[in-house]
């Protein structure tokens, strides 16, 4: 696979504050890459440099083979951007907004109308194309912005917090479009988000940024495995016996009790479970129910940044507890 984005020690300082600190990364063609981080971590600043809106203080970056400083015009035609804040002209219809974009980016006149129809279809807005933007809902505007970002056949699409402020249904819609996109347009997609679920479900790889530096970078599933194993919760009327049996049979080293349930932390719950059941049956212990929970990106996030999503600090001792509370059964 060939790389489409490469950054080397990319740094941005505002006065004495370093917003982005020596970020070096390589993103492959066709990847959906997530930038995760608490508010103010430097995600948007990093993105702005790649989009040639901000000049880096030091370091370099190439997109689609073009230097972001010396060849900014070529970089700009290679990328599509959906900003965090709305950026459509609401006194115009959505078709007019797309038309303007096509003119600004020099989409071939012969292809222009076909392409506009294509992107409108993709985000499901064809029937509203000639309505003024001020009649659109927040979710529809976002969809139009995505359509607009795609209009000039960009090689890379940047999405800065694409689903912020949207209701769950609209968010689901946007995710669908993003998945459709990577299939149909063979595009590389870079998105920033602080919704863990979004990063988990959409991204091939995720970089967690904190205080301007990358603190972890891998696929969501590997990141989750590194941080914490699975949790098995079992209910039985003989939990003390069950725990003794599991420890005797060398299945686990330690269990914790929680009311009438026991809780064990393991690496791979799906492989251990048959052995647990077997031991219990052998010892004549009845298990009433079993729940397995996998760690989610939230745990990963807290592990690496020591912050929960609001940006508040989680103290070291209570970190584990907070993580447990956030775990949900899948």
């Amino acid at each position: 696979m060939a790389s489409i984005i490469e950054t080397h020690d990319l740094t941005k300082r505002f006065g004495s504050h370093t917003a982005v600190n020596n970020i070096s990364l390589t993103i492959q063609k066709g990847e959906v890459f997530g930038l995760l981080g608490p508010n103010g971590a430097g995600k948007t600043t990093f993105l702005s440099m790649l989009c040639t809106i901000l000049k880096p203080s030091s370091g370099s970056a190439h997109i689609n083979g073009f230097d972001i400083i010396r060849e900014s015009a070529q970089v700009r035609t290679s990328i599509g951007i959906v900003f965090q804040d709305p950026s459509v002209d609401s006194d115009m219809t959505s078709r007019e907004n797309l038309q303007m974009h096509a003119d600004l980016y020099g989409v071939l006149l012969s292809e222009q109308n076909v392409r506009i129809q294509e992107v409108l279809d993709l985000v499901g807005l064809s029937d509203r194309a000639d309505d003024f933007m001020y009649t659109y809902s927040g979710g529809m505007r976002r969809r139009l912005e995505i359509a607009r970002g795609l209009l000039h056949y960009p090689r890379v699409l940047f999405l800065d917090e694409p689903t912020i402020g949207l209701d769950p249904r609209s968010r689901e819609h946007i995710w669908d479009y993003i998945r459709k996109l990577r299939k149909r347009e063979e595009m590389t997609i870079i998105l920033t988000t602080h919704y863990m679920e979004e990063a988990d479900r959409l991204c091939d790889r995720v970089a967690i940024i904190d205080k301007g530096s990358i603190v972890a970078m891998d696929t969501p599933s590997l990141l989750k495995q590194e941080v914490a194993g699975d949790t098995i919760i079992m209910g039985s009327d003989q939990i003390q016996n069950l725990s003794d049996v599991l420890i005797r049979d060398n299945i686990v080293q330690d269990v914790s009790f929680q009311g009438s349930e026991i809780k064990i932390f393991v690496q791979n719950a799906q492989f251990l479970l048959p052995r647990i059941v077997e031991s219990a049956v052998h010892a004549g212990i009845r298990i009433d129910h079993i729940t397995i929970t996998h760690p989610d990106m939230n745990d990963v996030f807290i592990h690496y940044t020591g912050k929960d999503l609001g940006g508040g600090e989680v103290r070291e001792q209570t970190g584990r507890v907070a993580m447990m509370k956030r775990r949900r059964a899948r």
Binding site: C51, T52, I53, A73, R76, T77, I81, F83, D85, P86, S87, V88, D89, S90, H101, L104, Y105, G106, R148
Partner: peptide
């Protein structure tokens, strides 16, 4: 107004 409503950004990041 263009700046306030974000549209100026769309123009300024274009290759023009």
């Amino acid at each position: 107004w263009d700046r306030e409503f974000g549209f100026l950004k769309e123009i300024l990041v274009s290759p023009i």
